[in-house]
Structures are given as structure tokens and as C-alpha cells.
Simulated scan of single mutants.
Amino acid sequence: MNFKDLTNKSLIADNDIDWEDLGAGVKRKIMAYDENLMLVKVDFEKDAIGSVHNHPHLQLSYVARGSFEVSMGEEKKVLNEGDVFFAPTLVYHGVRCLEAGLLIDVFNPHREDFLK
């Protein structure tokens, strides 16, 4: 399934979407989006890094599996399965995977850079 197909779908099966290998032990699946909202699964191998970055989007991330050291601005905290972090607009944030894991990221608006 390509990214354009996702904008017209309301019921989406995980198996219908391929993982995109980002390298260095990280891969993602864009599960669904429209112009205002996007849900992305991001899978991390142990010790993989989600480098510190910022963006104009609001981001909520749910730890679906594993353990992550999360940096948010000047703060760092270990988050585990069931925990959540919120990245406000333009705040620098990143993760280091302590135990192989999966993040469920939600963005507002959608991340156009992910679709290229």
C-alpha cells in the first residue's frame, strides 16, 4: 500500500503496510493520515537512537513495547510500556532505546517530510 492510498482508508490492516527501513535499527510504518493528523509506528532495536530534533508539529508518542530514555528539552526520563511523551511545537526531543521497543507516534498536522 502506498502513502496516497492511506488518505482514503478508514479501516487499515497492519499487514497491508510495509515497514520502511530507516537504518541504524529503526523502521517505521505510516498507518494513517490526513492533512491534520498522522499515526506512525516506529520500531527500534535495542540501543537504536531517535536523534534529537524538533519540528513544527505537535507530537504524542505512546510506548507500546520496550523501554526508552527520552530527552525533552533539558529533561531526560526513562519511559516504559504504557507511558507517553508529548513533544510541543519546536521543542527538541529524542530517544535512546534501552530494550527493543515500539513507539506509536501521532502528529498534528501530518508530517509531509515522511511522505517523500
Rank of each mutant, 00 (worst) to 15 (best):
D5N: 12
L11F: 15
A87F: 07
L103W: 00
S71C: 14
M31W: 01
H53A: 08
D47T: 07
G101Q: 02
S67V: 09
N80Q: 11
P88D: 10
I104G: 02
P88A: 12
F86Y: 15
F114W: 08
V63W: 00
S51N: 14
A64C: 08
L98I: 05
K27C: 01
A32P: 00
D18G: 05
A87I: 09
K77G: 04
D113H: 07
A24P: 07
I104Y: 08
G23K: 04
M31Q: 05
K27S: 04
V78K: 14
S67M: 14
V78Q: 12
S67P: 04
V26H: 09
L22G: 02
V91E: 13
G73P: 04
N2K: 15
E69D: 12
V52E: 13
L22M: 15
D14Y: 09
Y92W: 05
A87P: 06
N80F: 03
V63E: 01
F68I: 01
A24Y: 05
K46S: 07
E69G: 06
Y92F: 05
G101H: 01
K27A: 04
I17R: 02
F114S: 03
L37I: 15
G25Y: 08
F85V: 07
P88H: 11
M38Q: 03
L39Q: 05
L103H: 00
E74H: 08
H55A: 13
E75Q: 15
M38G: 00
V26Y: 10
K76Y: 13
V40C: 03
V95N: 10
E74Y: 10
E35T: 15
D34N: 15
F44Y: 12
A24V: 06
C97Y: 07
E20T: 15
N36K: 14
F3G: 03
K46F: 03
E35Q: 12
F107K: 10
W19A: 09
E99I: 05
D34R: 09
K46C: 04
Y33P: 00
F86N: 13
N80I: 03
F85T: 08
K27P: 00
G73V: 11
T89K: 14
V26Q: 06
I30H: 00
L6A: 02
C97V: 10
V78F: 12
M38A: 03
L90T: 09
F68C: 01
G25M: 11
L90P: 07
E99F: 03
L98S: 12
M1V: 12
C97Q: 02
G94L: 04
G101Y: 01
E75S: 11
I12C: 02
F44M: 04
L102I: 15
M1A: 09
N54V: 04
R96V: 11
T89C: 06
G23E: 10
H93A: 03
H55M: 11
D113F: 09
G66S: 06
D105E: 11
H93G: 01
Y62S: 08
L79A: 02
N108K: 13
N108T: 14
